[in-house]
Every structure is written in structure tokens, then in C-alpha cells.
Design a binder for these strands. Structure first.
Lengths: 348, 348
DNA sequence: ATGAAAGCGCTAACAG
DNA sequence: CTGTTAGCGCTTTCAT
């Protein structure tokens, strides 16, 4: 049974089916594609032949002649980041629902492999590209543009393609304002390299605005690669812990994403700083982990599934020419989820 | 510049390049594929033409004529599970290193969509399929087998394909023995539906053996869908908390994976059971999250990157006919990572 | 209602 | 060293 001769044979082609059913290959093609205008009798015979031969259409051949594929390229920053993992999953599901197959490219945040990935996708003649992260490298941009295939930026940005995203600036403002409202006066912004440029800038802007609106300042930018002991604070390399000690210490931190926030919490635990006793931390994304009782991270939640759904809808419409004209920009709302990583400032 | 006429044109073909460079298309093909036997002069002219036209080979056409693709189908159980996310990432990287592109299929643990996914992969004539999870559905199996494309099961199993995996049984034994050694006498096994069958069975077997070897028993099997309050305990529906209260309560739990273990820890926190004070928990996988100070889960670590590397090596060798003969079975070692979710049993 | 024929863009012999 | 030719498996007019 396992070693049946047919198992060894090549894939049956549409021609095999045709001769097996005693019809021409166009007829088989018509049956396969479910076109009308084929008599029930032949339809039946063809279907039988397909069954018996275990025929499976060759998508490659179809797509070659049709000059278009139903593959969607998906550029992901880092699959190991739970936010991206969730997004990837949603994107895959919504793509499948609209008849597209997803082809993923993990870029590891590196614009070099981003370029290589996009190149591969392009060679595969994907119907469009969904960027879940975009380094902003202008060469990638040109490559893609030049080939006139649609691109949608989900939860990241570029001026030359459709964007579906949250308003990062508003999110930054909300998160920071939450700390301000809790009485914090020295609030730092924490950035880790993995985050994509555009989002970082917008969240930072929101942070700065909230600070200014409250008459606080100056902004403090921490750039940290966990789990290092040192970080760049306003551009100068210092032990991270110094930010949270001394008279001028920060008591609140707005992190550019949950991974950063959780890493900081971890750091705090390690050096015996209390969260939220000594520092209050706000994250961004609301990854599943943030909801665990032991993490309990206050964060700005992005509606992931909604982002994915809209992103796929946008690019599918673009591909199918239901959407024309200049790049669109769809913003969805973020919400603040208050948990136990933030608390009112203890009066000294 | 952006609206240059050429941007609107179709993809240039190998023929365009040929005429632009004043050579035949085979010569272009030879240059593209880096074959020897092309004079430097022509090579240069061709390369120039490729540059100027922005030519990019059409992989579809190439693969159609070559009768094989360089796409690897990857069947993933649940991308949102950090273990799979990490594996997917590693698999993608190693695949790329060997010249393959990964095409992912998220099955959500559902054998229905697993089938659909495999079907899609097959239609795309993937060169092989990497199963990161396998429901064990025999129809899927037959579909794949029948088409004689190689399949490798990484960290999951089936008898009819190459397997690269840890020894789940040994892992189950180690995890359980760790609890036994800590003095625990009533040790339960915790299962959540997301886990793939084969691995569950093997880990369960290891658990039972360790129990028997220590003269303990009987085994207790908890089947739970977090965050429900109830669970199936040895097949009967009961409030989960009952397992951990009363005179005959379990003080140790071996969870079939980290996601389950962490969910249980979360449950324990919710109902005011102390970990490890009241229950010691051992997980399986060693997902990144397990290492956080606040989670500190004792667990059986799988060497993820090693699994991915070997898996890709195996299937690539199969595809490239460097590996022939009956299915191989590669086992890699697990290690116990002791953290703070386990402790010696408090004497009553 | 069905069939014949012309490619899609490329590779792979084989000639020159 | 370079060009010619014959398909890969399918869709798509256009005849019949």
C-alpha cells in the first residue's frame, strides 16, 4: 500500500486528468475552477478522474500564466517578540480568510536582512507586502515601489504605502500622562533597539508633549540593550541604576514597548528596586504576558486583531483594485490598561 | 522620479535583459546563475543590463521548469505560544541559511486547518514540510506521503517521517524525579489541550515511570483549559482547586509545557496558593518567559536552536538526496533548569 | 458544450 | 563561448 507504484510517480498534471477522463485539458481546467458551461456528465467524469489520480493543481503554473500570485509577503521584526508573534498569527488568519497565503520574513530588526527578505519575496512575485516592522531603509522602499506592488504598513509607518496603525503619539501621551497623574515628576523614556524607528519617534514625541503639558521636563531618554548594566542616558553611557537613585532620580518610566518594560522590571527586581514602590513603569502593546498577575504591567494596549484585519483588508483591496488612489492612513484607538506596575508617587 | 514611466511597466523578463545587452536569453540565464563559461565582457554587459532594467528573476518560472521549489512548508501549532515562536524563528533562519524560504501555516492546534494548510503547501509544491506540531491526523499523513515529499517532525512525532526531537519520556522522568527528590509524594500531571498528542503521551509516560520507580502512585492526570476554574481530573470534571486542598492533595505538579505551568502558577496566585510553598511546579520547554525572576519556573529545557538546525539539515539532505533510506530519528538531550517554582516539601 | 493553440518566464540540452 | 529550441503545467482566447 505504502509502496504503491503511483506513489513514486510524478505529480499528475491536468493532462493526465484530461486523458483519464477522456476530455481536453481546457475542460478539466474549467471544472477545477468551477466555471459554468460544463455538462453535469463531464463534470462528474472529470471530478472522478481528479479523485482517482489524486490530482492537485500546480499553483506555480497557474500563477505564472496569470501573472499574479495569491501570496502575501509578511515582513516581521522579531517573531520571538510576543507582540509580533500575535500579530503574525492574526495576519495569517485574516490573509487565509481572504484567500491569500502568507510568506513570512523575519528581519531580526536588521535592515540588511530586511532587504534580503523583501528581495526574496519579490522574486516570488508576492501579490503584496505587509510590513509589521519597517526599518525605514530607503533602498528597500525603492525596490518595492519600483515594482509597483502594494505594501501596507501595519503598526509601523512609511509615507509611501497604506498605513494601518495606532496613533503612537497619543499612546505615548496617554502612558506618560498616567504617570504624571499619579504624581510623578521625573519620568524617563526607555527605548530598546528592537523597536522600529517610526513608532519609537512618535511614542517619544507623545511622551515629550505630555511632559511639557504638565510643565515637567526635561525629557530623559534611556537607550538600553537588556540585560546590560549600562545604558545610554541622553546619549551618555552610564550605569542604568543611577537613573533611579540619587536626589534627581526618575520615579516613573514610560517604556517604548512591553518587552522593554518587562526587561526593566526584571532589572529592578535584580537590583532591589521596588516596582511600583520605587519606580512606576508603563509599557506599550499589552502583550499577553503583561496580563499575568506576576507581571501586572500597566500598558497601552494595541488592538492587535483589529490592526491585522484592517491591514489585510487594505492590502487585499489594493491588490484587487477595489482601492485606488494615494496611500491611506487608518488609525485605530489605543487604550490604557492600568495594572500594578504603576502607583501614586510616595511622598518623600 | 517616482512616477517614472518604467515604474508602471511590467516586470522586465530575461528576454528584455537579453535584447538590452545584445545577447541571447541563455547567456543571461547563465550569468544570473553564475555558471562558468561566460566571458568577462559579456558578463559585464549582462550585469549592467540587469542593473539598468531592475531585472529580478521570476522564481515561479524557474521552479516550474525545474520541477522543484526552494520553499519549505512549516506547520506550526500556535505562533502565539512562545516555544513555537522561538522555533519558527530558528527554523526560518536555518532554512534561509540553506537557501530555502519558509512558508508558515498556523494550525491553531486544529487538525482541520492543519489539513487545509498542508493542502495549500502542497499546491505550492513546497520542497518539503517541517512539522513543528502534528495532530496525528492520518489523512494529512496520507496526503503528504502520497506525494512523496519529504517531511520532518521537529519536536513532535510520526512514524513515517524523519524525527528530530528531544526524548520527551526522559524529560518527563527528569521533571517528575526532581519533584520526587524534593520529597513530594502526591504529584499530578497537568495537560492543556494545545499540546500535541505524541509529546504529551511520551511526557506522561515518563511521569508515570518516575512515579512507579519511586514507589509512588497512582498517577493523576489533570486536563485543563486555562483560565477555567474546573478541570478534568482523571477524566472527571472537578474544581481545579480541589486537587491542591484536602488531606490527599497534590503538592507537586509536572506540567506538560511551560504555558501550562505558567497558567497554573497564575491560577495558584489567584486562589492564594503559594508556589512553591503549597505546590511545586515543573514545566517543559524553558521558554524565555520562564527565566524571568518573577516567573522563575523550574523546567525541562529543550535546545530549540539545535532542534531547528538539525531539523532543517535533515529535510534539506532529504530533499537534496544526500539522505536516503528509512526515516531517521535524531534525539537531542534535555536539561533540567531548576528555578524557584519548586522547593522541598514542607513537613506537615 | 468542448477542443485546439498560444503563450507565461524560465532552464537545459544541444548546436554552432 | 554563445545561440536555438523544446518544453514545465496551466489559463485563455478563439474555433468548432
Amino acid at each position: 500500500m505504502i509502496e504503491s507504484p503511483s506513489a513514486t510517480r510524478r505529480h499528475p498534471t491536468i493532462l493526465d486528468v484530461a486523458s483519464h477522463a477522456g476530455v481536453s485539458k481546457s475542460t478539466v481546467s474549467n471544472v477545477v475552477r468551477g466555471l459554468p458551461g460544463v455538462s453535469e456528465a463531464t463534470r462528474g467524469r472529470v471530478r472522478l478522474a481528479i479523485q482517482e489520480l489524486g490530482y492537485r493543481p500546480n499553483v506555480l503554473a497557474r500563477q505564472l500564466v496569470q501573472q499574479r500570485t495569491s501570496i502575501l509577503g509578511v515582513v516581521v521584526g522579531d517573531l520571538a517578540n510576543p507582540f509580533f508573534a500575535e500579530m503574525a498569527k492574526s495576519v495569517e488568519r485574516h490573509a487565509a480568510a481572504r484567500g491569500y497565503t502568507a510568506m513570512f520574513c523575519n528581519t531580526e530588526g536588521d535592515s540588511q536582512s530586511e532587504l534580503a527578505g523583501v528581495e526574496t519575496l519579490l522574486e516570488h512575485r508576492v501579490a503584496g507586502i505587509v510590513f509589521l516592522a519597517f526599518s525605514g531603509d530607503s533602498r528597500t522602499m525603492r525596490e518595492t515601489l519600483q515594482h509597483q506592488i502594494p505594501a501596507v504598513f501595519v503598526s509601523c509607518g512609511a509615507e509611501w504605502g497604506d498605513v494601518v496603525s495606532v496613533d503612537d503619539e497619543v499612546g505615548g501621551r496617554m502612558g506618560t500622562a498616567h504617570l504624571v497623574d499619579a504624581g510623578h515628576r521625573r519620568i524617563a523614556y526607555l527605548f530598546i533597539p528592537e523597536l522600529e524607528d517610526q513608532s519609537d519617534r512618535a511614542r517619544w514625541d507623545g511622551y515629550c508633549e505630555a511632559l511639557k503639558a504638565a510643565g515637567l521636563g526635561p525629557p530623559v531618554r534611556i537607550s538600553w540593550s537588556p540585560p546590560a548594566e549600562h545604558a545610554l542616558v541622553d546619549g551618555v553611557d552610564r550605569p542604568l541604576i543611577e537613573v533611579f537613585t540619587g536626589p534627581d532620580r526618575a520615579t516613573g518610566v514610560f517604556a517604548s514597548n512591553d518587552v522593554a518594560a518587562i526587561a526593566l522590571q526584571e532589572f529592578a527586581d535584580r537590583v532591589d528596586l521596588r516596582v511600583p514602590g520605587d519606580i512606576s513603569i508603563v509599557g506599550f502593546d499589552d502583550v499577553p504576558m503583561a496580563g499575568l498577575a506576576r507581571i501586572a504591567l500597566t500598558t497601552i494596549a494595541q488592538p492587535r486583531d483589529e490592526l491585522a484585519r484592517l491591514g489585510i483588508a487594505t492590502i487585499a483591496d489594493r491588490i484587487e483594485r477595489k482601492l485606488k488612489g494615494p496611500p491611506t492612513r487608518t488609525l485605530v484607538d489605543v487604550t490604557l490598561v492600568a495594572r500594578r506596575s504603576t502607583a501614586p508617587l510616595r511622598q518623600a
